[in-house]
Amino acid sequence: MLKKIVATALLISAGLAHAFAPQAGTWVVSSELDGKPGRGLAIDVQNDTFVMQMYAYESSGQPTFYLASGKIANNQVSAALIRYSGGRYLGSGALSGKEAGNAGTANFRFTSGTTGFVTLPGEPEKAISRFNFGYPFAAPSLVGVWSLTSIGTDGLLSDAVQLATNLGPTSTGNGLVASPDGLFGCEHQISGNLAGSVLCVKINSQGQLQRSYLFTYSVNDGEGYSMRSSSGTQQMLSVRRLANPQGTGTGLVYKAGEPVAAEHPALRAHLSDVAAHGFAD
């Protein structure tokens, strides 16, 4: 039974073996993330079109930027890195930038929605990652409204849940955050085989385990697996934050204001049991 849950954790850490779109947002070269000004990447993917804007520097130290666009397939893309100059500056009149040369080809390969590698002209391949500057790996970052959708042999399943109350840490995590009715809870795992991921469990009012979720996420999006209690069948999982801890929507309108219920005594027990043992065959 432990093998299934460990295998899930290993699959997540290695990157899911299916096609996915890299998350739109600010990305960084991981080895250059030192808290000081440096290079950065703005990445977006719409349908199969990949666009990357890169802010960098000339050999003289002057700042510059590049644009690359191409078709992404099998989580990879190669595109010309085009430099621009002569555009509008602060306080100027109407000006249009012009291409100022092709720096070469940039090659990207993504290992998950938030991690990957880039090979820039004249440089070896380097790891890149989605830059997360607003959500630490801590219980308060889970507060908000979430949508969890899985697909597999159990069919297409979806849960929308508001996580509102920090019930304190379990033996493997740093704070179990539960829904107002106390029947759904999630926690960052900081020890054991699932360390580095988020584990959630859903129970019914009788305290019976209905489903568990295991995923990694960055900012508003995540990916992982869900499992049904009766069989342990794994389903691919897509996770989306619908509202942040302050109640501000991230793209959808929702109805808030549910009354807060006391912690269900089975919620913590089931989360700790899944974290330690997984599902029985």
Rank of each mutant, 00 (worst) to 15 (best):
F215T: 02
G247V: 04
A80F: 02
G152W: 03
L90E: 04
H18W: 07
G175C: 06
E58N: 08
T64D: 03
T170R: 07
R83M: 02
F133R: 10
G116A: 08
M54K: 03
F20W: 13
E123W: 15
E263Y: 04
G38W: 12
A261L: 05
N193S: 12
T115A: 12
I190H: 01
G113W: 03
E223A: 15
G97R: 03
N204I: 10
A280Q: 14
A160W: 01
A73M: 08
S59Q: 15
H277N: 14
A256C: 04
I151N: 09
Q76Y: 08
S158R: 09
G61K: 06
F279E: 04
S60T: 10
S30A: 15
Q46S: 05
A19M: 13
L81W: 02
S31V: 13
L142V: 09
I82F: 02
G251F: 15
L120M: 02
G25I: 00
L11T: 10
Q206T: 12
G134R: 09
P140D: 04
T119P: 11
A275P: 06
G93I: 05
A160Y: 01
D273E: 15
A56V: 03
T115W: 04
G122S: 01
A261F: 09
Y66C: 02
M54S: 03
A280W: 05
G70R: 00
G251I: 13
Y84S: 13
Q235R: 09
G222M: 10
L33K: 06
S141L: 07
S218C: 02
S147H: 09
G116L: 13
H264Y: 11
P265R: 11
A21V: 04
S31A: 15
